[in-house]
Design a protein around this nucleic acid. Sequence first.
DNA 1: CTGTTAGCGCTTTCAT
DNA 2: ATGAAAGCGCTAACAG
Lengths: 383, 383
Amino acid sequence: MFPLIGNVPKNIKTNQVDFCCLFEKYLIIYQQLLTAALKRHQITIIDIARELNLSKSTVSRALTGHPKVSTATREAVLALAEKLDYQRNMIAFNLVTSKTLTIGIIVPEFVTSFFPQVIIGAQEAAAKAGYNIIVSQSNESYETEVANAKVMLANRVDGVLVSLSKETRNFDHLKIFQRKGIPIVFFNRVCDEMQVPKVVVNDYDGAFSAVEHLIQTGKKRIAHLAGPDSLIISRQRLNGYLDALRKYNQPIVEELIIPYDLTTGKVKIYVNHLLALKEPPDALFAINDPTAIEAMQIIKQKGLRIPDDMAVVGFSNDYASALMEPSLTTVAQPMREIGSTAVQLLLDQMDRDVANWKAVTRTLKAELIIRGSSRPLATAPPV
Amino acid sequence: MFPLIGNVPKNIKTNQVDFCCLFEKYLIIYQQLLTAALKRHQITIIDIARELNLSKSTVSRALTGHPKVSTATREAVLALAEKLDYQRNMIAFNLVTSKTLTIGIIVPEFVTSFFPQVIIGAQEAAAKAGYNIIVSQSNESYETEVANAKVMLANRVDGVLVSLSKETRNFDHLKIFQRKGIPIVFFNRVCDEMQVPKVVVNDYDGAFSAVEHLIQTGKKRIAHLAGPDSLIISRQRLNGYLDALRKYNQPIVEELIIPYDLTTGKVKIYVNHLLALKEPPDALFAINDPTAIEAMQIIKQKGLRIPDDMAVVGFSNDYASALMEPSLTTVAQPMREIGSTAVQLLLDQMDRDVANWKAVTRTLKAELIIRGSSRPLATAPPV
DNA sequence: CTGTTAGCGCTTTCAT
DNA sequence: ATGAAAGCGCTAACAG
């Protein structure tokens, strides 16, 4: 039998019968291959190899920029690949190299602008290193997060970036990555239980300076709409709040600290509750911008003036916060930088051996941006 | 030679030498396999097969829920798979079935809330059908869009959802999908040149009713900050604007229609220009919400009252638009529904043969939401 | 019901 | 510099 793929045998007999027979066979094979290619709708290395009368391996080498290929061959292959619009089948490539060049990102949501921005930063950094990103959202649900992790695992991502859902208290689904040697990096909502790299901002300092600022503007009863206790960021920000009060010898009033589980709709209840207190607060430090914004709407509806009757400060510097009336004072997080840093940490780990993984924690700077929702008109800077 | 994988040969000789030899060989093989597995950090079908003394195919069948497997075998396999935390290698699965169960989405950006919401809708619909989503953003750049398309192609997505960048005028990079038999569905920013399914909203009607509303509130000089001419949505919305003016016999004033290429920062120039006109407009219909919001900030800075001096209407009902002061009148798009409908159309195509693809265009409803930025205080509804 | 075999498209030794 | 062959992990067609 003649070789299906590869060189045409050099010693073709010129004997007519032989040649006809040979030709016929080749014709059939050719047609079969053609049909197959059409059916696949894909150009493969074999198609190029057949056309150029080369072996698969040579074509592969030419395509991957292997040094030991003659210039003529390389150029011919590249030209034909271009012409035929050949795209390397990443699936097969992945199977062989057991690399997918893909980074998975699991975020709790991307409705507010925080996570989309982080993702953009991550995507840009990943693209530079030749990696793709696949994103999935846990919807703040533990179950979904576990499912997402399974999908990432099945898709054999080369690494994952995770920001935990508010429900997550068990981390087995994430420890699997470690066990399988897939690097994992936490960002924003991190996990103390796992010894892996993390990217956070100095939530404590941010919260501290926010509350300090409120105190300095003369506020005496500062309320805090805190985040769910499960999240470290909630606790950090709460601590910043408490320590600022302590530093300035303000009493810590239990009824002014309300833990909030981030469920939409509950802000209204809490703010109304705060406003109905015998001694209502004169300022509010909210766990994040969406919460602060929602609170502002309610406060304004009540006819209270912001910041005079009630100052408000948020956290993150969401897209909408500068657009409010008054604009929202907030602690800005370097969102894109969080994404790119997380990817960087991931790439670092992928380069080195499992044994050399280091659980560095990179803390980025969160900075207070003072805007109208907390700046008393009296102390406004002169024009 | 003994079979590496599969049953242990039944007729093992009890002859000591033979047995020792056999055992030794198996030991070496076993250790090799073990090392390989450890190195791979992955549990494969072979690991399960070896452990349970079954063939690969049986394990595969048990795992995939094939009917012709004994209950005992299935349970044993499933139990071990669970215990070993086996995850099917999707890469290999994809290679064999030439399906990736992945849908690619190319969007121009996801900074504003429109595309994230569409993606959420798409992701939910896709998840229901067992598909994953991979998202990439073109950044409003044609070059990047082409690169993104190539990535999707190389990753062998089963289908793509595309919303064009503002720069895209050539569609060769997307026609490749068609040629390869990969279904493609456009949404929001569609392309007339390609005969494929599309999901749009009735931009014309939305724009028409927005402008009609402005006219009915007594506005006489309505400006339009139009989108780039390359986008069909821009033209549709412009036409709605024009026809509304015509219907009410208002003159069409060239200087009040400004095409805007969506570049950040330019809104300020245009709005200032409009306000500096000899006869400045008394209302503004903006191509989308971010533009309208930016315009509102500038108008307010100038000390003009909204809507009395200048009414503003946007398009899309972004997250921030309800939070403005005054809140922004806008034409709401069913964002999640756009995403889920697009996925639905894609799945429909994947089911049928290429020959039976139909280029349906699904038009969803865009509805005017009247808010403070256009509601004259005089005509405000009684409390 | 179960085992054997042959690929999916690609890379990578090992020959030549 | 090039070709042949093995194999990545899985599924599916074909035999028992």
